[in-house]
Amino acid sequence: MADQKTEKIIVAFLCNWCTFTAADLAGTSRLKYAPNIRIVKVMCSSRVDPVFILKPLLDGADGVLIGGCAPGDCHYSKGTFYARRKIALAKTLAGSMGLDPRRIRLSWIPASEGPRFARVVNEFTKQIEALGDNPAKREVYI
């Protein structure tokens, strides 16, 4: 049930060393991207415990984006590999527990790629809009 009236909210956990800087770059380059994301800066995408993803989803956020350095480019060398495992776990659990795993997205966005950041945000926002409101949003009994 797509509800276009309410603004969709996407919580984004962005790595300080790459995607967060890319977001900054997108801003300073005056690139336009969807205003739906709420950014939480983390020092590494592997800091994102699956609970960080599940909490906003159960509290009514429409999507969760995790942005980190491409595998091999991690500031701490191995963080992204662990991150990928954690996100894979979160998506799998969400899927088996009745949440829509399509609301979770992991993207590798290097610091220099402001345009790519803007594109990912636009793309994901569109995808979330197509999915409609997160049913948990107005759920009183959750």
């Binding site: 590999f81 662990y82 495992r85 954690k86 997205r105 992991l106 993207s107």
Partner: peptide, 16 residues
């Protein structure tokens, strides 16, 4: 434990 290890090429369907 799975979350304490990794291989470099895996789980590519979960990233982009």
């Amino acid at each position: 434990l799975p979350l304490l290890t990794f291989s470099e090429r895996e789980l590519e369907e979960f990233e982009d």
